[in-house]
């Protein structure tokens, strides 16, 4: 047994230990589980934790060229109507930045309040009960995010979908274009489907 072997064993042990610590630290925080355990309440909370994280990530891969904002002005993520996140979204974006701007969660009742909102989240409940005018939202240049494939097909820009018990999203490219948004190709490459483009 030479020194190198001992060192290798030691370094691996240290790596395993630190990996364990990180796992524990992240378990209750920002990083969603990769796969959603089936059923139950905890499932629902896990789903929205992932969606909150996705909303945060969207702000980072989407640009709003039509809006002129001060560098230090907050980038607003507005939840229209019913809020399924509870405190999860607030906790997720707390202290985070996108394009160097601090993120802020706002809750709005009507689409009319959407100016000033870079992201407008339309929950499943809101979409089923009082669907907002997506045309109006388009005109404000907001990134509209819904919770279904229909949302995207109906004129929303992004719609969350659950595939294989994993949260994924689809993109309506025409809606995006009408809203005057730019979405990073990296993000688009991760989309489950893109509508309004040639091909699927």
């Amino acid at each position: 047994m030479d020194v190198l072997v001992w060192r290798r064993i030691l370094s691996r042990a240290v790596a395993l230990a630190s990996a364990g610590l990180v796992t524990v630290a992240l378990a209750g925080s920002v990083w969603p589980q990769i796969s959603l355990p089936p059923g139950g309440r905890s499932n629902e909370s896990l789903e929205y934790r992932v969606k909150a994280a996705y909303l945060l990530n969207f702000t980072r891969y989407v640009e709003w060229p039509g809006r002129v904002a001060a560098a230090d002005s907050a980038l607003n993520i507005c939840v229209l109507g019913a809020d399924p996140f509870g405190r999860v979204l607030d906790l997720t974006v707390a202290g985070r930045t996108a394009h160097g701007r601090p993120l802020q969660v706002r809750r709005i009742r009507a689409a009319a309040e959407s100016p000033g909102c870079e992201v407008v989240f339309v929950s499943r409940q809101t979409w089923q009960r009082t669907p907002p005018s997506l045309k109006a939202l388009e005109q404000t240049g907001s990134l509209t995010v819904g919770e279904s494939e229909e949302f995207a097909r109906g004129g929303g820009v992004i719609g969350f979908v659950i595939l294989d018990e994993t949260v994924r999203f689809v993109v309506n490219d025409e809606a995006r274009d009408r809203a005057g948004l730019r979405i990073s190709s990296r993000m688009l490459s991760l989309a489950a489907a893109i509508y309004g483009r040639d091909g699927p």
Partner: peptide, 14 residues
């Protein structure tokens, strides 16, 4: 750079 988005959106395949 290329895997940032995949990591962010947890896309293992990508």
């Amino acid at each position: 750079i290329n895997t940032t988005a995949a990591l962010a959106f947890q896309d293992q395949r990508a």
